[in-house]
Amino acid sequence: MDGRLARGAETRRTTLRRAAEIASVEGLDGLTIGRLATELALSKSGIFAHFGSKEDLQLATIGYAEGIFVEWVVDPALAAERGLPRLTALCERWLDYSRARVFPGGCFFAAVTAEFDAREGRVHDAVLLRRQGWVALMESLITDAVELGELPADTDAGQLAFELDALVRAANAQAVLTSEDTAYDRARTGISHRLGERSVAT
C-alpha cells in the first residue's frame, strides 16, 4: 500500500510539473488530462484519479506553481535581514526566478494572471488570491524598511509595491518575448534608483 501511495504521489507531482510548464507558455486553458497522459506516457484514468475535472487540474497546477515560487523567491528572501535587505532580496530572487526559466514561459503567475484577469470563477479567484498575497508581502516588507528608517517615513507602501512589481513583471515580459536578458539589468537599475544606495546590485 505504501508503494502504491508513493507511486500515486509521484504521478501527481510529475503531472503537475508538466501542467505548470505548459500553462506558463500556453495558459491554463491549454491543459487537458488527455494531453498530459499522452506526453507523460501515463493512463488517462490514472491522472483522472487525481484530478476529477479540468478546473480541478487548473487549481492544483496553481497550487503547485505557488509552492515552486515560494521555494525560489519567498523563502530565500525572508531569510535575509529584516528591512531593506529583505525587500531587495525579494526583488532579486523574483528576477532570478524569471531569468532561470524555472518555467519555460517565464513567471507562471504573470502568464495565468493575464489569461484570467477578466474572467470569473474559481480559477480567477485562485489567481487573484495569490496576486493579493504577493502584493501584501511586498507592502509588509516596505513597511518594515520604513519602520527601520531605511526608507523615508512618508513612503507610500502601496505605491512603491506597485512600482517594484511593475519593474519585475516588465522585465519578465520583455525577456520572454525577446529572449534577451537586458530587461533584467534594466529592472535592477530601476529598482536601485527607487530604493536608493542599499538596493539591488547590478
Rank of each mutant, 00 (worst) to 15 (best):
A89P: 04
D154A: 07
G46D: 10
V74P: 00
F116Q: 01
P85I: 08
V70G: 00
I47V: 15
V74D: 09
S98A: 08
P76Q: 08
V146K: 05
D125M: 05
T155P: 07
A157G: 06
F69G: 00
Y64I: 03
L128A: 13
G52V: 10
F69M: 01
S53H: 07
A136G: 01
V73S: 04
D156L: 06
A41R: 12
Q58F: 01
I68T: 11
E115P: 04
G121Y: 08
A153V: 15
D156A: 11
A77S: 12
Q132F: 02
K54E: 15
G133E: 13
G106Y: 07
Y97C: 00
D96N: 08
P104Y: 12
G52R: 11
G149Q: 13
G63I: 05
G52S: 13
S140F: 09
A49T: 07
A145P: 11
G133T: 10
L87W: 04
L137G: 08
V73E: 04
F109D: 06
I142R: 10
L141M: 14
V127P: 02
E115W: 06
K54A: 12
G149S: 10
A114T: 12
A79Y: 06
W72C: 05
D144N: 09
L141S: 11
D125H: 11
F51Q: 03
F48N: 09
G121L: 07
R131G: 14
Q132D: 06
R101N: 11
R99Y: 12
L84P: 01
A100G: 02
I142G: 05
H124L: 05
G121Q: 09
A126M: 09
T113K: 03
V102D: 01
G106T: 11
A79E: 15
F69Y: 13
D56N: 09
R119C: 03
S43E: 13
L84R: 06
E55N: 02
G83I: 05
Y64D: 02
Q58T: 06
A114H: 12
V73C: 02
D117Q: 13
L141W: 12
R99K: 08
T113E: 09
C91I: 11
A118E: 15
D156P: 07
P76F: 08
A65R: 02
A153N: 11
V135R: 03
